[in-house]
Design a protein around this nucleic acid. Structure first.
Length: 306
RNA sequence: GCCAGGUUCGGAUAGCGGCAAUUCCAACAGACUGUAAAUCUGUCGCCCUAACGGGCUACGAAGGUUCGAGUCCUUCACCUGGCA
């Protein structure tokens, strides 16, 4: 067994279809490295196609284990952690990666979930109050207005800052206030990357790329969704998210193929925009366009010197 | 040829005398402190103003009625359905 190395940490973030995984795999091959997927959907088992666990168009040799895939000999942590009916939070993700052991000189944290990055980088504070499903269910019956009122009574200051229309936010805020007497909110910095690479492709180009992905993955996605429904996961949260929700509508014949493809493309465009908005304000990110000439060698030298 | 229905902001749709005009999609901008591929917000004819606001141009075309017209009337053009 090699000694526990302190690997060099590199963050690669970018919207869907920007080529994060391809880049990370290339760099791992060249430099010796492992990958941690920072992605709130790739954690689910049985959801490989729709969450884009592997870049399309290239053949891969893959060994799939829970929590660890080996892709062309490169370890990828963070895939297949749980089944789609289980809930998983940013905090759970933090716990998962804080237990990982690395054996290579480099580790690439690559993904598209900005919030997860913020938590593991320590950019965002988290409170030590666990989710309370019963409370959430109860609160969910109230209107946003009622929730806001409730929060105002509990913590006026927080109520002043919160988005009054966002029930999800309001419920969590109330949960924190009522959940525990002595909660603390603290940042949990886990990684200190030497470089933070942001992938950014001009809109028309990246839209074209996802569109192509949607077209080529559609049939496989439908098969995957069918299997998920057969396993009894149709009512789970990830099935109501990007791509899968549209696949479900197609399978129940609420949309025809043309409509489903269009819907899926638009949803992905929207998602890309939301990701870009998030990444834009994250500190210390250097953005690069992977479509520009010399990108691969630029990345190589950046990572080595960083 | 006759009868009926339609033509509205990139697409679809509401509107039945006070309208720069509804809603959805697209597009664009943004929020996010244990659901984050989720959830939520704003803008969306042109021009001026820091803002309240103001000006201009617009609902197939041309006329008309009216203080005032997507909205009513007339004619024309195009599309759709029924009868010939």
């Amino acid at each position: 067994m090699p000694k526990a190395l302190k690997p060099k940490q590199v963050v690669i973030l970018g919207p869907t279809s920007s080529g994060k995984t391809s880049l990370a795999l290339k760099l791992c091959k060249k430099l010796g490295g492992e990958i941690v997927s920072v992605d709130s959907r790739q954690i689910y088992k049985y959801m490989d196609i729709g969450t884009g666990k592997l870049p399309v168009g290239e053949p891969f040799e893959v060994e799939k284990n829970d929590g660890l895939w080996v892709v062309n000999g490169v370890k990828v942590f963070g895939y297949n952690l749980i089944s789609p009916d289980k809930s998983f939070s940013a905090f759970d993700f933090y716990n998962f990666i804080s237990k990982l052991k690395f054996e290579k000189p480099y580790v690439f944290f690559t993904g598209g979930t900005g919030f997860y990055f913020d938590v593991i980088l320590g950019n965002k504070k988290v409170a030590n109050v666990s989710p309370d499903e019963n409370l959430r269910k109860k609160l969910n019956k109230l209107t946003a207005e009622q929730l806001f009122l409730k929060l105002s009574v509990l913590n006026k200051e927080k109520a002043g800052l919160i988005d009054k229309n966002n029930k999800v936010r309001l419920i969590r805020a109330i949960e924190i206030e009522t959940g525990s007497q002595n909660f603390v909110e603290k940042a949990l910095p886990f990684i200190r990357p030497s470089v933070v690479i942001g992938l950014k492709i001009p809109r028309p180009e990246i839209y074209k790329r996802v569109d192509r992905w949607v077209e080529t993955s559609f049939e496989a996605l439908i098969e995957e969704t069918k299997a998920l429904i057969e396993m009894g996961f149709s009512e789970t949260a990830p099935m109501k998210g990007l791509n899968y929700k549209t696949a479900v509508l197609f399978l129940s014949q609420k949309l025809n193929k043309q409509e489903a493809l269009e819907r899926m493309k638009y949803d992905n465009h929207k998602y890309i925009r939301r990701q870009e908005t998030y990444f834009k304000k994250m500190p210390k990110v250097s953005f690069f366009d992977p479509l520009k000439a010399g990108f691969d060698s630029l990345m190589l030298s950046l990572v080595e010197s960083g």
